[in-house]
Design a protein around this nucleic acid. Structure first.
Length: 206
DNA sequence: GTTCTAGAAC
DNA sequence: GTTCTAGAAC
C-alpha cells in the first residue's frame, strides 16, 4: 500500500523536519488530533513496535529525548502531553506520538481517532519501554481486545463526561480549553450570597 | 492513514 | 429532513 509509506516519504523532505539528530527526526503530524501533535521517528528502517527488542532501548531513549526537545522548542508544557505509541499502528516506520491532551483539532473526526489515543490502544512510552526491557518483544493485542477498545464509549480524558457522539465530545473538549475545571452535566445550584463575617466597629480610631 | 458516501440514528 | 457513523477504496 502506498499511503502507509507516507511517513517514510515525509522524513526525506528537509523542510518537514522540526528537529533532527543523527538517529531520529521530529515532524508535525499531517492530520494533528490536538493543538500540538508531533511524531518522532528513527532514521533506521524499523517498520513498527513489533520489530523492537532490547537492543533498541537506547534508540527509544533518543526518541524520548527528541520528544522533550520539540515540546521545549514549541514553548509549551511537557506535563500537558501524552507520549507513546499506537498499539495497532497503520503507518510504516516506528513513530512516537507527542500529543497535547486538549484533543481540540478539526482533524479529530472519528471514534477510532479518540479511542486510539485514550484507551489501552495508546501505549505510553514508559510502559512500552518497560515491557520491552522485561519481555524483549512487544506482543500484538488480541483482535477481540482491539475491537472491544475501539467500541468503548466516548469518555472525556479530563472529567467523567461521556459523550453521546463525537461532535458532542468535541464541543465538550473546547469547554475544558476555556475553563480547565471539570465541566458538570448540570448547571450549578444557585446559592444565597455569602454573608460577610460580622465585625464589631472599632472602639478607637486607628 | 484519509476520503467518500449510504444508510442508520436522531 | 438532517446529522452522524462506519465500511469500501480495483
Amino acid at each position: 500500500m502506498s499511503w502507509s509509506n507516507g511517513l517514510v516519504k515525509e522524513i526525506l523532505k528537509p523542510e518537514s523536519l522540526i528537529i533532527s539528530s543523527e538517529i531520529a527526526v521530529v515532524i508535525a503530524d499531517k492530520f494533528p488530533k490536538a493543538r500540538h501533535h508531533y511524531l518522532v521517528l528513527p532514521l533506521a528502517d524499523i517498520p513498527s513496535i513489533f520489530h523492537l527488542n532490547r537492543s533498541h532501548l537506547p534508540l527509544l531513549e533518543e526518541l524520548h529525548l527528541l520528544a522533550r526537545n520539540v515540546v521545549e522548542v514549541k514553548g509549551v508544557h511537557w506535563q500537558d502531553f501524552s507520549v507513546g505509541f499506537h498499539a495497532e499502528p497503520s503507518m510504516q516506520r516506528l513513530h512516537l506520538h507527542v500529543i497535547s491532551r486538549d484533543f481540540v483539532s478539526p482533524s479529530l473526526k472519528t471514534k477510532k481517532h479518540w479511542n486510539s489515543f485514550n484507551t489501552e490502544l495508546f501505549v505510553p512510552y514508559t510502559q512500552l519501554y518497560a515491557q520491552l526491557e522485561k519481555e524483549n518483544t512487544i506482543a500484538r493485542l488480541p483482535k477481540s481486545l482491539k475491537d472491544e477498545l475501539l467500541a468503548k464509549p466516548l469518555i472525556c480524558n479530563q472529567c467523567e463526561f461521556v459523550a453521546k457522539n463525537l461532535p458532542t465530545l468535541k464541543e465538550h473538549l473546547v469547554g475544558h480549553l476555556l475553563d480547565p475545571n471539570p465541566i458538570r452535566n448540570e448547571p450549578p445550584v444557585t446559592t444565597r450570597e455569602p454573608v460577610p463575617p460580622h465585625r464589631e466597629p472599632r472602639s478607637q480610631p486607628c
